Simulated scan of single mutants.
Amino acid sequence: MSQRTQEKPAPLISESIIPAAAGEAWRILVVERDVTYAESLMAGLRRHGHQVTRVETGGAALQVYGNADLVLIDLELPDLDGLEVCRAIRSAGETPIIALTARGSELDRVLGLQAGADDYMVKPYGFHELMARMQAVMRRAKPRPQTVDVIDQGPLRIDAGARQVSLDGKRIDVTRKEFDVLYLLASNTGNVVPRKKLMQQIWGDSWSRRTVDTHVSSLRSKLGCPDWIVTIRGVGFRLGHG
């Protein structure tokens, strides 16, 4: 008598595809409640040299996404709808978002992209394709090449090529937008950068006064001295001397 064979469920991430070649390392936030799936995804990302942080809820994601270069989010979350989380992240800035979800209808895709996701992938998917889509999204997110690659302002060093900031030789961990703010100010050393110019060049059409102030406050804290960024009341900001 023949035994009935039991089929294995399809993996959420295809294991039959060879991983993409390693490239630039990013800080990636994975918003996923499924532990097994998240661990598989994170292991693959780390093998490619990326720094990965995971949270299980939308609320937690909204607390920490500012430290990420890219957000990978499942839309099925235990506390908030993933679409609402995407809208909140997008309204605050331009952090790249890729939705990774089981919601696969055309309407779901449209709603996800309208909510602010830069790309949308339906589970199960191939890891190679995910890496390719991440690279495409990050290429679009990169700022235009700058004229000056490295700016030294006393002990403060801003390396545009590596997108790194160091003070007295010690690296300062800044977010993508924080770097853009600091680099713009440093590129105009001695001059005041109007608040409107700062907002338009870095945030485009998606910004608020509070967004700019929050990033400036965070930079001052990380640099250890408020004098590094001087507020010119009613006008804007300029780089100081710490």
Rank of each mutant, 00 (worst) to 15 (best):
S206E: 13
M199G: 09
F179A: 04
G236I: 01
D205Q: 14
F179P: 05
D173L: 06
G154I: 00
V212L: 15
I172Q: 04
V165L: 06
K177W: 12
L182G: 00
L156S: 00
R238F: 04
G234H: 03
R209W: 12
L239K: 06
N188G: 08
V216Q: 02
I172H: 03
L198C: 04
S208L: 09
V193Y: 15
R195F: 00
G190H: 12
G204V: 04
G234A: 07
R238S: 15
R157T: 04
G169H: 05
G190F: 07
Q201S: 11
P226D: 07
K197Y: 08
E178N: 09
I158W: 01
R233H: 09
G204L: 07
S217W: 07
G224F: 05
L185Y: 02
C225E: 14
D213Y: 15
L223Q: 05
G224L: 10
V174F: 04
H215Y: 08
I172G: 02
K197D: 11
T214E: 13
S187A: 09
W203V: 10
D152T: 06
R210F: 08
R238H: 09
I232E: 05
I229K: 14
L156H: 01
L156K: 03
D159R: 15
S218F: 06
F179C: 05
K197L: 14
I158Y: 01
D152G: 04
L198M: 10
K170N: 12
C225K: 11
S221W: 11
L156T: 02
L184K: 07
G161C: 04
W207I: 09
S221E: 06
L239W: 07
G154K: 04
D180T: 12
S206V: 12
D205Y: 12
T175A: 15
G234T: 03
V212N: 13
G161H: 05
R171P: 12
L182Y: 01
D227W: 03
R171F: 08
D152I: 06
P155W: 05
W228P: 03
R163K: 06
D168S: 14
V174R: 00
T211K: 14
D180N: 13
E178M: 15
I232Q: 02
G190R: 10
R220P: 07
R195L: 10
C225P: 15
I158A: 00
L167M: 05
S218K: 15
R233D: 13
W203N: 15
R163N: 05
R238T: 07
P226A: 15
D159E: 07
H241P: 11
Y183R: 04
L156I: 01
P194V: 03
P194G: 00
E178Y: 07
P194F: 01
P155D: 01
L182H: 02
H241D: 09
